[in-house]
Design a protein around this nucleic acid. Structure first.
Lengths: 208, 208, 208, 208
DNA sequence: AATGAATGAGTATTCATTCAT
DNA sequence: AATGAATGAATACTCATTCAT
């Protein structure tokens, strides 16, 4: 019988027949990780909820226990990404003396490039393949705010001078994005040379 | 104007049941324009092939006579967009004296910002809502080449000095993109102030 | 009777909108019976999956929950047919004394002709209107094996003598098929006279 | 442009741009041969009219000049097959003395097996994959008539005795079919051994 | 006679989500 | 909390046939 074969096949994959009760945190984490891996491998659209629960080793209903819709996972993934990303960069910046603004900017650049290189696949998939309303704008805003603050502090301290801080922040951030993408497309995955090239340009901009 | 319907109206009128044989060019143009309008209005996913043929006033088979899949129209639209885009900018640049490199760069920036503002909706939909691997990279390459040439010519003539022309081109192009997007998000749709802010930053970068 | 609806009626009644969870076996059976009835009535190609689920009283998704494609039902139907067919014939043969080989052969012939007459419509549709490479060969093999065994046993016991058992089995089986088809085409649906004519010929072959 | 590429590709395949006017016979023959080759290679359903005209090197309209529908080609192919088949066998039989009935039967068997081995692929596709109304019955009838006549003549001359000529003819013909199919499935494509095995069985049947 | 652009009815299949257990 | 059977709306694509040229 066709149906039997199919059912048995599924059963083989699933680790156990018993229901395991796990802390919600773990379940959510499993689901998100499974989704992330699949999104990267096959793209968001091509990844079905079935794929996700199968990879996470849970029943389909469980998915809908923790997320209202498929989009919810994406949003959650995005938030997690942004949180981790900014935290990492913030830490790198914080390791510099409060008043050495040039160093802080360099640390920001270095941290950003490194974090992006390390996670560009997830970034691409989660930020480019799906754009609901204006949330992603909001996510970008957080990152821009971080950079904007840094730039403003430096200007206040006389480390550099900027005609328009927001414009500069956007050019710096999107410019860095584009250059890293280009490097990756050319199989160049080292942060060092990329940062050097960007530093040169950006310090000109800041020095004015 | 980029990728606008040049042959609409006719299609609207044609509601008759009679079969009309038209030059392939016209048919393809009608279909692409109908698709573009709908993609902008409803998004790519929400636009069905039925919608497209209905708007274009042709039978569904005709669509598949000219395009193998729905994705094909998007690719075609992308190509048309890039072609028109660069042509427009090239024209703007060409109106400047060959040896006035600052002016040529200013013309490039102005032309680019204007063309982008005028067509960002189609651009967004066609370049962001759909990902065919690396074609968009190819499309971007054309635009970057245009800018790269301009920068190289200026440098050769001693108008400015650049450590790395490609990095500069990417930062300028993606930075400009981001700033225009931000302006549009803030309902600011005039090219003038945007160009002024960008000029300031970019001339610093070029002057070194 | 081969492959007849054992669980129909229930499906007919169930027109309610409520979701009913049934044992997989029953669902699969309902779906297969509905498909069989429609295939016989309208042909395979003319029967849509919609027709099937409507007749079975389930949602369309349910169909694809149990079968991967429309062809799968045909394959399943074929398997069920062969299984039921051989079981029926085996039972008829088993009712004869183990050592009366002539009687056993007669029982085989009678059982086969009767089962075929009773189900030739489903047989035709399922085995002739659709060609999946070599599976039907496999299905035929089962039937041939059954007959081959019977012939071999008789020969071993000296009831008859055969130069080549496989050739004989094929001639007997395909010959019987052709003759029954011819009778049915002539609106002759009684097993008795058909068997008599075939017996005459076959016993000559066996007696040598 | 997508459309252009597609059109050009087709143009490449087509040999010439000029319309060649050929005798209708040739055109029909080309079309039938192209169809036969494709039917064998891909199956009837999977072969489109486009495939056929492309392979035949003519425009699509030309197909509909010579055949009313796609089915028409199949019917034509079937008729050609039957005509050639019976003609070949008739010739083989005719080469035997009019009164040597055993020899005539042997010639019939030999001719039939050989013709079938040589053309079973086309036979399968054309007679098994498509069954419109009762035409194929008619085609089979021709073949059966030929054999029936031969059997009747032999009986009249006292060469053998048959209880029911039609039953015998069917068993002989379908039995032979099945045995040849089985041999081919086992990669045995020589007529000689097949005929020997069949002769043995059939002569028993005839001798009674 | 020959062509191939134009047509559109027709259908299998997918997959997010629900809910009975 | 966990499951997975059940659902059905929604859509891209095929291809035999026609007919303007």
């Amino acid at each position: 019988m066709v149906a039997k074969a199919k059912t048995e096949g599924l059963a083989q994959i699933r680790r156990s027949r018993t229901r395991r009760v796990l802390p919600a945190e773990v379940r959510v984490g499993d689901l998100m990780s499974a989704a992330a891996a699949l999104f990267i491998a096959k793209g968001i659209e091509a990844t079905t909820v079935n794929d996700i629960v199968e990879r996470a080793g849970v029943g389909k209903g469980t998915f809908y226990h923790y997320f209202e819709t498929k989009e919810d996972v994406i949003v959650a993934l995005r938030e997690r990404f942004s949180r981790d990303f900014t935290a990492e960069v913030a830490q790198a910046v914080a390791s510099c003396p409060t008043d050495d603004h040039r160093a802080r900017f360099a640390a920001w650049l270095r941290g950003t490039v490194e974090a992006y290189i390390a996670n560009y696949k997830l970034h691409d998939v989660v930020f480019h393949e799906f754009r609901p309303g204006n949330r992603n704008v909001k996510d970008k805003e957080i990152v821009l705010a971080q950079l904007g603050e840094l730039l403003a502090a430096g200007e206040a301290a006389g480390a550099w001078k900027l005609p328009d801080a927001r414009t500069a922040a956007i050019v710096i951030f999107d410019g860095m994005h584009g250059v890293v993408d280009d490097a990756i497309a050319g199989d160049q995955r080292e942060a060092e040379p990329i940062c050097r090239r960007l530093s040169e340009l950006f310090s000109r901009m800041l020095s004015g």
